[in-house]
């Protein structure tokens, strides 16, 4: 295989795996932002401040310590999320709230910057290196009234909406942006495939195609193996006559023949063993004296008492 072929193979692999991505801090998303908080969620000091909600979209816990939150594109390292606070670990599909109150001395979750309701607000989350941008959001100036939030429609989704306008679109600090009281997949199957026939057809098609793929591959691998085996045997036996080669049918020897050979060898070895002159007896076997096995020479002598 030349370098070009290998290159083409890897390019194809990359094309067919577009969704391969690592789970970790890169799965964290800025999920919901409130700029003017008058009567909404309070911090632990009882103060209403602007807040930024992060969401872990992965199925593993993610620690955002040492990452950076900022509202200035020119200063990615504006607020380093402190280390050694166990609360910076976000469990799978859970949220973490930061207060944009400009009072970092109040604790890990109080940022050192404020959000300005009169201007466009850009918020970025950077990786611990301060270079890699994990997620960002721009909230256009003046689109949010007091106690309204700018949020992803569903947790981690790409569609942003304004929440807090009515009872249907409520603000959800530290909670799921969309409440799910059922499994949509199951509901969909219940609705569209109540008899289960479609599931049976689809699933059997997948099972069959998967195993058919395996069968076809091993048919091919088997053929290649037989061909290599045949070629090696012809080479080792120095045959050149095609008819003779065909007659011997190399490579297709059934396993039964090998089993028979194995059994014959086993029996032969058993027979060889049977004619050994070893005798099983209950009589005491006479052994010649040897000082090497004498106990008297191997025991430590006790010094005599005087």
């Amino acid at each position: 295989m030349n370098k070009r072929t290998i290159g083409v193979f890897f390019v194809l692999l990359l094309i067919i795996c577009p969704r391969a991505e690592a789970q970790g801090v890169k799965s964290v998303r800025i999920n919901e932002v409130m700029i003017t908080n008058e009567t909404n969620f309070q911090d632990n000091y009882g103060v209403h401040s602007a807040w930024i909600e992060l969401y872990n979209s992965s199925f593993g816990s993610v620690n955002v310590e040492s990452c950076f939150l900022t509202n200035d594109k020119n200063n990615p390292k504006m607020y380093p999320i402190p280390k050694e606070d166990i609360l910076t670990e976000i469990p799978p599909h859970q949220h973490l709230l930061f207060w944009a109150d400009g009072l970092p001395n109040r604790g890990t979750f109080h940022l050192n910057f404020l959000l300005d309701p009169t201007k466009e607000n850009w918020i970025g989350l950077y990786d611990a290196n301060g270079i890699t941008l994990i997620d960002e959001v721009t909230i256009p100036a003046g689109i949010l009234a007091a106690d309204q939030s700018y949020a992803r429609e569903d947790d981690g989704s790409t569609n942003w909406v304004i929440k807090g306008q009515d009872n249907r679109h409520y603000v959800t600090p530290n909670a799921n942006n969309m409440t799910k009281d059922s499994n949509s997949k199951i509901e969909s199957f219940k609705l569209r495939d109540h008899s289960g026939i479609l599931m049976a057809i689809m699933a059997m098609m997948i099972v069959f195609s998967c195993l058919l793929l395996l069968a076809t591959s091993f048919k091919l691998i088997g053929k290649i193996s037989i061909w290599i085996n045949k070629r090696n045997q012809i080479k080792s036996k120095g045959l050149s006559n095609k008819n003779e080669v065909k007659e011997k049918d190399f490579g297709n020897t059934p396993g039964e023949i090998y089993a028979a050979i194995g059994m014959a060898l086993h029996e032969y070895q058993d027979n060889v063993h049977d004619i050994e002159d070893t005798v099983l007896t209950i009589n005491k076997v006479k052994r010649n004296y040897s000082p090497w096995s004498s106990k008297i020479y191997t025991l430590t002598e006790t010094p005599r008492k005087h």
Binding site: G196, M199, A200, A203, M204, V207, F208, C210, L211, L212, L214, A215, T216, S217, F218, K219, G222, G255
Partner: peptide, 17 residues
């Protein structure tokens, strides 16, 4: 040695569905 037998294994899964 006989890959077509894999399909027999596939067919029996119909019991599940």
């Amino acid at each position: 040695s006989n890959p077509k037998l894999i399909l027999v294994g596939a067919s029996a899964q119909f019991g599940i569905f």
